[in-house]
Design a protein around this nucleic acid. Structure first.
Length: 590
RNA sequence: CGGGGCGUAGCUCAGCCUGGCAGAGCGCUGCGUUUGGGACGCAGAGGCCCGCGGUUCGAAUCCGCGCGCCCCGACCA
């Protein structure tokens, strides 16, 4: 590609709306353009990177036995009603109507469509196992797009779906995808760590997220400092710090004027926060049935986790109660008590509560609390479950080590869906014994643009982007100096361009009539891994300067050796993108 | 959906408070001089000042109502 013809220009200043370094660099380098909130165009440079990421993904999916398909984005709404996810996805699902007023949805994911496809085309156990994948556009009407390309409304996702005859088969398919994911992230130069995750609205049991750790992340992750346990806080198990021990004492009322928060209460009574019970209230909407009020209780030194709570309630939708609802259900904000809660209020207690004697809890009267409240003796929950959020400093449930926390962005997610969709769509194939077999499913997603953003986030410096060699828009950039003043140099540059191209390299030839400084700075900004400088000075000496983007100095290479030298640098750069190396970086980041 | 900020040239921003010719730098076009890390001169092009309504002799500026974008929160396969 001749740069004089490349569509799109670099900006000399950073655009204003960009928050993260990666977003700013992608805009400034002319990779992407924002059309509206959460919707981006890809210019030629950005599109090249996107395609290269997709190439890596396709290679690894194929290696793992996946077969590429193409599923429609335009989907009948009935499919979503059938799976029961029309309600579950809520406003995130883009919906529209055709001219015949038929309800349609723009696919936010493709479990429904692929399950239906499988049902129509798989006939017997001989069709198992099968892993189908695609790289396609997804649409999600996010409540708040943010972070440049991180949370958007239209994006590219590689999604794969496995169908197996039994658990062992699913385990094997899952493991194959898991390994493929490690290789994909490594090859794209994006350090990720796998963490235990909640499976959310997709359904199913057992899932892991591949998290890219960054301060700009929107997920909170905990990891153990002594074993390899890592989990999203939506899921993370932990050992609760011990309670203050003691025999149960008689309950007594105590005046606590103005102490409506745990911190105020503990300070007022001169006790520790872990000696109190904290109450949080939600309205729960089950998948079927009427909404009901929920009274969640955690020990005062912990926070209730909404996702864990929803799971403990069998996957209901939760929202915080409003003041009126608190009053309607006989609850006094700041002083609510699990003792004597009205019977229709569903009380959920965290695991810590049965183990914690003599807590201070609300008296259900403004300005009063109860001392020495004991679980079992004074009150009981409908449900006792892990509903508290892990915190840094808590102990690891696996090994007792200390948990640390970090922020991250989900790059990929692998799920064991099991029978969620094959049940919903009543899928069965004929087994070897003639009886029907219900396939068990897995699903596996990767955000292409998120990889692109993360790759920039970890690979940039003051000069601009330093693309991993595997996904750079070009393999090598040729900076021509003084081409208009020296015909011989111009001709030789053209020849070198042809030689590099013939060698299978993606070459960007900066043939523009610009000053050298402009070209060098643009080359650095765009982030091409290898830069060549062709000039009369070099031409006269029979050399070309070769500089890798990360090197501080260029080397002079004999003109005849240039193509080989570029290829050897490229090989060396690609060679670093191994699972071992990238995962070492990921762990260092945590 | 709650809270905050911002909408003026392709980009970064002045101008608005206190109403009176639409501005700067960068970028862009042409010519010339320059040419190894974002040159210089000369001449240019480029604007529904987010939209609609109102006040006023007169609105980028004041008032009202919208819309959009960004950030925090809620939400988030």
């Amino acid at each position: 590609m001749r740069m004089s013809r490349l569509f799109g220009h670099t900006l000399r200043e950073f655009p204003n709306e960009a928050e993260t370094p990666s977003h700013a660099l992608l805009l400034r380098g002319g990779f992407v353009d924002q059309l509206m909130a959460g919707v981006y165009s890809f210019l030629p440079l950005g599109n090249r990177v996107r395609l290269k990421i997709e190439r890596v993904i396709r290679e690894e999916m194929d290696r793992a036995g996946g077969q590429e398909v193409r599923l429609p984005t335009l989907q009948p709404i009935e499919l979503w009603e059938e799976s029961g996810r029309k309600a579950g996805m809520g406003d995130v699902l883009f919906q529209l109507r055709d001219r015949k007023e038929r309800g349609l949805a723009l696919g936010p994911t493709h479990e429904e469509v692929v399950t239906r496809l499988f049902k129509d085309h798989a006939q017997s156990y001989r069709d198992l196992p099968a892993t189908l994948y695609q790289v396609n556009t997804k649409f999600r009407d996010e409540a708040r797009p943010r972070g440049g390309l991180v949370r958007v409304r239209e994006f590219t996702m590689k999604d794969a779906y496995s169908f197996d005859a039994d658990d062992a088969g699913l385990d094997a398919s899952y493991a194959a995808m898991f390994e493929a994911y490690r290789r994909i992230f490594a090859r794209c130069g994006v350090p990720t760590i796998p963490v235990e995750a909640d499976s959310g609205a997709i359904g199913g049991k057992g899932s892991q997220e591949f998290i890219f750790l960054t301060e700009y992340g929107e997920d909170t992750i905990v990891f153990c400092d002594s074993c390899d346990y890592a989990a999203n806080t939506e899921k993370a198990e932990f050992v609760r710090p011990p309670a203050v021990a003691g025999d149960p004492l008689p309950t007594e009322v105590v005046d606590t004027p103005g102490a409506s928060s745990i911190a105020e209460l503990a300070a007022f009574l001169g006790i520790e926060e872990r000696q109190t019970a904290k109450a949080v209230f939600f309205m729960a909407t089950p998948k079927s049935g009427d909404p009901f009020p929920v009274f969640a209780v955690v020990r005062g030194d912990m926070e209730a986790n909404e996702v864990k709570l929803a799971n403990a309630l069998g996957g209901t939708e939760l929202r915080p109660m409003v003041d009126q609802e608190l009053a309607d259900h006989g609850l006094v904000a700041g002083y609510a008590s699990p003792i004597g809660a009205r019977s229709h209020v569903h009380v959920v207690a965290d695991l810590a509560l049965p183990e914690a004697p003599n807590l201070v809890a609300g008296a259900n009267e403004v300005g009063r609390h109860l001392r020495n409240v004991n679980y079992g003796r004074d009150w009981q929950a409908h449900t006792v479950a892990d509903i508290a959020t892990a915190q840094a400093g808590f102990a690891c449930a696996r090994c007792g080590g200390t948990l640390g926390m970090g922020r991250g962005i989900e790059m990929g997610h692998v799920f064991r869906l099991q029978y969620v969709y094959t049940d919903a769509f009543d899928v069965a194939v004929q087994g070897a014994d003639g009886n029907p077999v219900r396939p068990t499913m897995g699903c596996y997603g990767i955000g292409v643009e998120r990889i692109l953003s993360a790759a920039v986030e970890v690979n940039h410096d003051d000069g601009g982007i330093r693309w991993p060699a595997s996904i750079a828009p070009f393999d090598v950039v040729m900076v021509g100096i003084g081409l208009d003043r020296d015909e011989a140099v111009r001709e030789d540059a053209d020849r070198l361009y042809e030689e590099l191209t013939a060698a299978g390299l993606d070459v960007l030839f900066d043939d523009r009539d610009e000053r050298p400084g402009v070209k060098f700075n643009d080359a650095d900004l765009i982030g091409v891994p290898v830069r060549l400088t062709v000039s009369s000075r070099n031409h006269g000496a029979g050399v070309v300067e070769v500089k890798s983007r990360e090197a501080s100095e260029a080397e002079s290479v004999a003109r005849t050796e240039v193509v080989a030298r570029v290829q050897s640098i490229r090989e060396e750069l690609l060679g670093r993108l191994t699972v071992g190396e990238i995962e070492r970086q990921a762990r260092a980041g945590s």
